[in-house]
Design a protein around this nucleic acid. Structure first.
Lengths: 209, 209
DNA sequence: ATTAATAAGTAACAAATATTACATAACTTA
DNA sequence: TAAGTTATGTAATATTTGTTACTTATTAAT
């Protein structure tokens, strides 16, 4: 089998026949941290399912400035790709590997066929949509209702969970880009958090206390 | 038939059998402008399909402050309800009638059955998801990337399209709530737009030039 | 017509965030 | 180790948005 990770992670979600089909038509692809997996305006011909690692989904404005919308975790699929494949074929978001990641890429035709004839696939798709919707709502809440210091702290907490580590390896500039603000603002607020004994700063490193 | 609007609007989307079923199980409900159609935390037992009018979908923070996410137009369904019905049963958004509106309410059980056995319904659902996703992305873009004056102007333009009229009947306070800011800010920016000859202001009325 | 209620205008000020500019610290590489 | 590069700290200032407080205009009610 292409991947026994697939077997382990999805045997309660997909039926046996589908698992085998996924294994047959899906291509296993690996990305290194910070690799662009899908870029904005790129035609979408495959649906990715994330086996290992994390992916961040970003939106971009005309000036090329980014904004993190949400993270994908293992077992999840990029719903953006789904919608794109049904209608518009160009990606509206950028997907970047947050860590080294492995994906199974499934050709659109199969995805459409399964949607037509496989119950477990349909449930998976609907479930994915629901999760994504919730994340989008949270993203909106965060941007609209929270101040930058709160957004920053949430972001850090989120990352510790994602990476399963209280010590983050990040630069202030990277955070600024994800949160769509400037490096100076982030440095300032981080220093504030340090003064409140919530974090400890050092070069390329933030320890959450 | 319950509604010939249904027949007219949906005969190219749903197959004949489904149209009849919708007509049988769906309940026609009317709302007046500003009526709350679905509120936050309200259990969802029906899927609404909008026949006439417009609905605005709002999100709320802990302080009870609102934020407009997007508008629903005739022929559309509230995807939020869909996701809610599949998992969480409580609404995460508030739906308010932007104008007098008529909806067909479909019990969840039917929606699930159709999703299982009716191709045209599945396509409708997927199509709905896609539209909603796009609107959510636009909402995020707007909040994250635009300044209040641009958001305001877009909001006004959007409303003229929705209401098919260049003259809007609104109060500054209502706009402020939709955009999650204060009345004073909106009044200030509107006056600015008026000075730029983009709009003309009077009590309860904004004319887009 | 007078009064009350609601909507809008505006000034003054406060807070949050953005920008510029530069200093210092920590790593990298020749 | 010296020089260059990258990351961070921080002050000064500008801009945007939010808040308070009050005035004026418009409509509704008595």
């Amino acid at each position: 089998m292409n991947s026994n990770v697939l077997q382990n992670k999805f045997n309660s979600i997909f039926d046996e026949a589908l698992l085998n089909e996924i294994d047959t038509v899906g291509k296993l692809v690996s990305f290194k941290k910070d690799d662009i997996i899908i870029d904005i305006n790129q035609p979408l011909t495959h649906i990715p399912i994330l086996l290992n690692g994390n992916i961040k989904i970003l939106r971009e404005d005309e000036g090329g400035n980014e904004l993190l919308i949400y993270f994908l975790e293992a077992g999840e699929t990029c719903t953006m790709s789904l919608t794109c494949c049904m209608g518009t074929t160009k990606s509206k978001i950028r997907a970047v590997a947050e860590q080294d990641s492995t994906l199974i890429m499934i050709p659109v035709q199969n995805m459409q066929k399964w949607f037509h004839n496989n119950e477990s696939w349909r449930n998976f798709i609907i479930q994915s949509y629901q999760t994504r919707f919730d994340e989008m709502l949270e993203a909106i809440d965060s941007i609209a209702f929270l101040k930058m210091d709160e957004r920053l702290y949430n972001y850090l907490i989120n990352k510790t969970k994602l990476h399963a580590s209280k010590t983050l390896v990040v630069k202030h500039l990277d955070i600024a880009e994800d949160l769509h603000t400037s490096r100076v603002v982030i440095s300032r607020l981080l220093k504030q958090l340090e003064n409140e004994n919530k974090i400890k700063l050092s070069r390329n490193k933030i320890e959450i206390l």
